[in-house]
Design a protein around this nucleic acid. Structure first.
Lengths: 337, 337
DNA sequence: AAACTCACTAAGAGCGCTCTCAGAAGCGGG
DNA sequence: CCCGCTTCTGAGAGCGCTCTTAGTGAGTTT
């Protein structure tokens, strides 16, 4: 029975019959392996006429490759759907790179415990060839669980937990230090910081960079902690002003918090940058529109996504990679400092 | 050979051998069909001990279902990675709904022509069970191409082209009319609008709603057109002020454009809402932070995503659905009008 | 006690593809 | 003119699962 059953998609078998060759030959043509020109032609013709498209599941079953890459996002964090555009940027970079490799992107939001179980099951079932993990908190058990499945995993920012994972991050400490140095160079003397959450690499390292730069200059550190949201930045700024009304600069660990800080400063009657200089971190779209436009440390978000995908693809292909990759940041000078 | 080959994942066969039953029985247990309690127990035990996870590809091959749903986003539009948070919201809703149905989300960005071909091929290969199409421009050939594959497709906003597609949208015209009515009720007499692009449903219908409401009140319409971006809103506002310096209200077809308009008004020395009242559309996060906070027409973005997924799942399950679904909007009154 | 029903389970045939392996065909050299 | 060599092609065996079709044994009826 090699007739094309109506209502059913044509198979390799049908194409082979129509072209007068064997299944194997059709398979070779489809996969670009060397085949006699005349059969090649016959097969192509048959494929066109039949509108044949290879069945993905059947291919996966034998090759053991799904051509699917999962991007796992920890949904409940403030970042996923916040204004900072971090995840859209990463998605953009990842999907660019996957496109050139002809893989598809499966988006998995790790919100509820239920969804985490689902993700683990799905990965264990070899539903995907590899996993990109984004911005997990230190205590998260997901990396360990996924590593156990044997599927390649990469992560943005190094993991805080005990499971070491290949990762690509940005030079948080270096970027922060550059920002603080810029403030020092401008003659600022009482430089505070609004740090991010201390259970995330970004929060920790940016604070460390701030401290490093200040220590070198033997000035006192003045620290408040936020959670990367605008509101928390505003609150932290008020706190700092209360603690040290004489501060003349503040390095803020995220642009969103910096926006909040600018607000608090305005309310407190301080002029930016005249009275207080402000530098943010991230260079999100908003940074160009704050009042005044925000001087900030840019992190190459799309590039992070791209490299994440590239590293993972290497792993999937069985190549060795350098387990840590750090991308440079860049100080973007606008008007707030 | 029913031994578990090392380095290879256990199969149904292995589980069956270990539990002392047939493959079919294991399959029944896995799929929750009625099975004798004792064999059930034995099978569960064997599954646990072996760490068995069903092979997805094999199952797909026979059931013809992939449990995958594609979300196709037209990448080059201004919206995908802009600040308006539309797509993140839709993704959120979609993935919520897919989670309850135990399906996975495949994200496809339709940017380059190459990527569109890839999407078509992928869908034609039955790589996914259904497709959600978001915000396509009227001239896009993708809906027609996808419909041809026989895979269920739903779309947000009705399509402008010739291919009618099941869709879920919001009451753009109604929302716009409500906003304009609110301005009329407040005694405004010269009400302008900044419309969105006229090749997108949102742009067209919101303008239509504005016109409807104004026609009923027999006032003149004053129209400028933007492209949903902040900059275009600012430019359009300047244009309107030049055209009719006496206007006392403006309905803007998106919050992002409204933010730009507020800026232009401030620069022109008009007070909001005293001199000019402003109403936006969307109710994005930013709307609460503009100066003054923006009165706007909220569209239930997450709910759109949820309903999109729900409609598609019905289609995939072979059920009939009402091809058009319109969700209500809500006027959120803040300080700009 | 024999016949018959009923609830399960076992066996086996695919699903559509890849890939190994052996055989066919083409080709120059002895 | 035949043999060994290379290059292609075809047949067939799976990949791991579902689902239909028989078949088994226990329980019920007459």
């Amino acid at each position: 029975m090699n007739r094309v059953t109506p209502g059913r998609r044509p198979t390799l078998e049908n194409v082979a019959a129509r072209a007068g060759v064997s299944r194997a030959t059709v398979s070779r043509v489809v996969n670009g392996m060397p085949v006699n020109a005349s059969s090649q032609e016959a097969v192509r013709k048959a494929i066109d006429e039949l509108g044949y498209v290879p069945n993905h599941a059947a291919r996966t079953l034998v090759t053991q490759r799904t051509e699917l890459i999962a991007l796992v996002l920890p949904e409940p964090t403030t970042r996923v759907f916040s204004e900072d555009q971090f995840f859209p940027g990463v998605i953009h970079g990842v999907s660019q790179e996957l496109e050139t490799a002809d893989k598809q992107l499966v988006l998995m939001l790790a919100g509820s415990p239920r969804s985490r179980t689902r993700i683990e099951r799905s990965v264990a079932a070899h539903h995907v060839d590899g996993v990109i993990l984004a911005s997990l908190h230190g205590t998260d058990p997901l990396p360990a669980a996924l590593t156990r499945t044997g599927i390649p995993v990469v992560c943005n920012e190094r993991t805080l937990g005990s499971t070491p994972l290949p990762c690509v991050g940005v030079d948080n400490a270096g970027g922060a230090a550059t920002a603080v140095q810029h403030l020092l160079d401008a003659g600022r003397t009482r430089i505070a910081t609004i740090a991010g959450p201390q259970d995330m690499i970004g929060g920790i390292d940016r604070l460390a960079g701030y401290r490093d730069a200040l220590r070198d200059s033997s000035r006192r550190s003045i620290v408040a902690v936020g959670d990367f949201t605008k509101d928390s930045g505003e609150a932290a700024m008020r706190q700092l002003l209360a603690d040290d009304p004489g501060l003349d600069a503040v390095f803020v660990a995220s642009d969103l918090m910096a926006d909040g800080a600018l607000h608090a400063l305005r309310v407190a009657g301080r002029r930016v940058p005249d009275d207080v200089a402000v530098i943010g971190f991230d260079d999100i779209a908003l940074a160009r529109y704050t009042d005044p436009p925000l001087t900030t440390v840019r992190q190459p978000i799309t590039e992070i996504g791209r490299q994440l995908a590239r590293q993972l693809l290497r792993l999937v292909a069985g190549e060795d990679i350098d387990p840590t990759m750090t991308l440079p940041t860049e100080l973007i000078i606008r008007e707030s400092a």
